[in-house]
Simulated assay, not measured.
Amino acid sequence: MSTPHPGSSRIAPSRRDRRTGRTLLAGLVVGALTGALLGAVAGQSSAAPDPQRVISRDVVFTLNNHNDTSVPCLADGAVHTVAGRLVGPREEVLGHAGSTRINVLVHDAGTGGWFWNLQGARRYDYAGQLARHGETSLILDRLGFDASPLADGRGTCLGAQATMLHQVVQHLKAGIYEYVARPGAAVPHGAQVVLHGHGVGAAVAQLEAAEFDDVDGLVVMGWSDTGASGTAISEAARQTSACLGDDYVPFGATADDYASLLFATAPGRVRRAALARRNDTPCGDVTSLLGTVGALNLGTRAVEADVLVLQGGRDVRTRDASADAQAGRYRAADSVTARTFSRAGSALPLEKQAPQVRRTVLRWLDSTFVER
């Protein structure tokens, strides 16, 4: 049926025609609104990852607490359960995506796995934000911290921590670990493993990479082999002295000291959350720190993995320009990148520049491993 051209004679529509026209018009309006709404939803989905895709699952590793590194220290040699948490895209965390890249996050003295996955502060949730960009991470509670208890803090040491980290890397590659809630279920396999360490955790990660040569990448935050500040040296001496009479000691003599060793710009709620989760440090780790520094001074140039060095410009535990100095020590590395965040303290994932820190890490991961 043809539609009259504008300017042609008008014919008055019948009542039935008017009803039909109103029904048709209503249908067209509803259809248009529905299409627009669906298009908007689709546009939102394509513009940003669906947060429902990001999940976490608690996992456990069975590890031998012994020292196979060049650090002169002793551990109890016993088998321990070490806890961790996988955080990432749902299909990868549940082991449905086959082999994948797994970032292993290794915490500092006095903190814990919570450092990388701070709850209630999404902007400062390092693992969660990496997961929203497609990365899967394993967050460890090192032996002697939180969900990985150790009765005697003298029963481990940093050489043993690096050896256990090496076992974790091997277990990830072979799929030899378990979900806490679903023992026996298939777990993700690490086709590539990248270690991320902060503070003393960075020293442990670097020692593992240097002496076992089984990881693809190394991210070093807030650590320098030769650039420790007077503040860091004084704190290490204080802890060592305190360990003469105990097997666990605080990191930082007071709560204010603890905060000053970690933070420069972290918001108050982040500082309060960190203080509420503050851990004492096993004395075996404390008393083996000097030997670990010595081993790293000899072994850092043996690291062959790609390396990213990140420092805070206001980190009271490192000297100025230590990021570039540290980067220059990785002489055998496939590639080395260094970046200093001028306004940040030591705890880079929890400082106000945390988004820039993550963007730097994500760009480095994408550019370094895109062809592998």
Rank of each mutant, 00 (worst) to 15 (best):
V106L: 14
L172R: 08
A273W: 04
T360N: 11
T292S: 09
T231C: 01
Q192V: 03
W114C: 03
V41E: 11
R57G: 02
Q119I: 00
L244M: 09
R363Y: 04
S148Y: 10
V336N: 01
T111V: 12
V30M: 09
A202D: 07
D256V: 09
V270A: 08
D246L: 09
S137H: 11
V336A: 03
G199S: 15
L275D: 02
R182Q: 08
S288K: 13
R269E: 11
T300V: 14
P13S: 11
K173P: 01
C157G: 05
A259N: 11
E211T: 07
R372D: 14
G252L: 04
A205Q: 09
G294T: 14
S224V: 06
G88M: 10
R101S: 08
A236C: 02
L165N: 04
A191R: 15
G201E: 07
S56C: 06
G313K: 08
D324M: 06
R22F: 09
A344P: 10
L86K: 04
P4S: 10
L350Y: 02
H96K: 15
S288Y: 14
T254V: 05
C73P: 01
D306V: 06
G153R: 08
T254F: 13
L25N: 13
P183R: 15
S229T: 05
T69G: 07
L105Y: 08
I139P: 02
L130F: 07
R53H: 07
P349R: 07
D315K: 12
A255E: 12
V180G: 08
Q356I: 00
I233Y: 00
A40P: 00
A83G: 07
G268T: 15
V106M: 13
Q44G: 06
Q44D: 10
E92G: 00
D256G: 10
D315I: 05
T136M: 13
K352E: 11
L262I: 12
V93R: 01
L172P: 02
H80W: 06
S14Q: 04
L130S: 05
L218P: 05
G134H: 03
P267Y: 12
R358M: 14
A109D: 12
G112Q: 05
Q44V: 14
V307F: 13
L195H: 03
A209S: 14
L158E: 03
A162Q: 02
A40D: 13
A347H: 11
A338H: 00
L74N: 13
G230M: 03
D152F: 02
D225E: 07
L244A: 14
Q52Y: 02
R154E: 09
L165R: 08
R271P: 01
F145G: 01
A147C: 02
L362H: 09
L138P: 00
A228W: 07
P6G: 11
G77M: 09
T265C: 12
A354E: 06
V41I: 15
P49W: 02
A181R: 09
A237Y: 01
Y248N: 06
D214L: 05
R142I: 12
A344D: 11
V200W: 00
G27W: 10
K352C: 04
H107W: 10
G201N: 09
A253E: 11
G21D: 09
P49M: 15
G7N: 13
G120W: 00
G268L: 14
D256I: 06
G345H: 05
T337P: 00
R343I: 10
A127W: 05
S46M: 09
V316K: 13
Y179E: 00
Q129P: 00
T265P: 08
E178K: 07
V193I: 15
L348E: 02
